[in-house]
Design a protein around this nucleic acid. Structure first.
Lengths: 220, 220
DNA sequence: CCTGCTTTACTCGTATGGAAGTATGGCATA
DNA sequence: TATGCCATACTTCCATACGAGTAAAGCAGG
């Protein structure tokens, strides 16, 4: 028999809240009430409370003792750190891919998806495909586990991107992705690194813009 | 008035357990009982349980529903991922330091500490100074927050190092650190990157060795 | 009108009891 | 002896109750 191993209720609540925060359904600074959520999902406070603890560990919520729990604001510093880490790591991964010349059809497929999502104006689909594009590169480099680690760091970044991708030019992102893929297919490590760094540095201009537009969503 | 804000008891229990795991006082595979720990620290089960949840979020414990909570084994994959990420990030940080030529006395001070700790055979002190050495480089590069992020990923790695540093040649580590510092002081970015990558690749030989020596402490 | 205290309602934090699930040992059986 | 069933003891998980601390509203006094 297949071990379905339904996760604990508290874990399920956490996963639900986690997605809500990343998708922007729960906005920075918003208040989270244990009793309120508990009533919504038909549970007692305890599992909800434990879900909040997990959420705080993710850096997505802030538990202020005896005061209340709030959705954390997007930390500019955290986004910049994650960005720097991504630039360094993905540069190395890109070089590995360029050297070993693996199959890159997965990345190409995501590129097509992005074009369609852009045309349809489906922002969530675009952002998710963007993620999978970079994940596919890590996979092609033979280090899928590294992408798992980056996912955690990227949490804060993703929240911003769900906002910024509504505003900024998505076709520019697609062009940058295409440049990366072309360099990788050509096996040109230097060009790949350059393209990757250029692409990820795009965020350095987007971030201050978003922080200016939505000052109450950001901190630091 | 200074907001002392004594952390919640659950948080204190978590911090205590966290240190115990990293120092190796709690060994991989060991069983953690809510009731037992609760009795030890004179609390009820609930705060201990919440501490376990935090510990699981850190990847240091594994909660098996209705079965028990166990200290997680050291994931070889996680260590390799963290190592790859560190190599990429610290290479970039090293280049930044070499370019901007900031004050590096903090790194030099840690180097001295390591020599003394090695002579005294104080392994924990050595490992902690090793950490601060790398942290000081991130600080010198102007990105202390990046090191904060790496600390989380390094958790699994540190557990291994507390084991391996008892076995392997610590003077070799010191020599590698000296090479890094020398390159940084000279402002030689290429040499710094080479030294950093060489240093961090040392782990690629140590890890399989440790996994072979302590097979029941590792997984993957 | 403004200031300061008091009350009140709310929050999170902890303790405890019961429910559901799992592993283990003993026992009957082949 | 080997095997399968079953009762028991143990675990985590959830619900509930109580306590401590905070914040804000109401009110008295200037």
């Amino acid at each position: 028999m297949i071990p379905i191993r339904s996760a604990s209720t508290a874990q399920q609540v956490h996963d639900w809240l986690y997605r809500c925060v990343l998708r922007g359904d729960l906005l920075p600074g918003m208040r989270l009430s244990e009793t309120e959520i508990a009533a919504q999902v038909g549970l007692s406070r305890q599992p909800v409370r434990e879900a909040f603890i997990r959420l705080a560990s993710d850096g997505l919520a802030e538990i202020r003792p005896q005061r209340g729990t709030y959705i954390g604001r997007i930390s500019v510093r955290a986004v910049l750190s994650a960005r720097l880490i991504r630039e360094a790591v993905e540069s190395d991964l890109g070089r590995m891919v360029a050297r070993s010349r693996p199959d890159l059809s997965a990345m190409a497929a995501e590129l097509d998806l992005q074009a369609r999502a852009d045309a349809a104006g489906d922002v969530p689909a675009f952002v998710e495909s963007d993620d999978r594009f970079h994940g596919a590169m890590a996979e092609a480099a033979g280090h899928p586990a590294v992408w798992q680690d980056l996912e955690r760091l990227k949490a804060q970044m993703n929240r911003m991107r769900h906002l910024s991708m509504r505003v900024f030019d998505r076709s520019a992102t697609i062009a940058q992705h295409r440049a990366i893929l072309t360099a990788l297919q050509a096996g040109d490590g230097d060009a790949a690194e350059t393209a990757i760094r250029t692409h990820l540095r795009q965020m350095l201009t987007e971030l201050p813009e978003m922080a200016r537009t939505h000052p109450d969503y950001f901190t630091d």
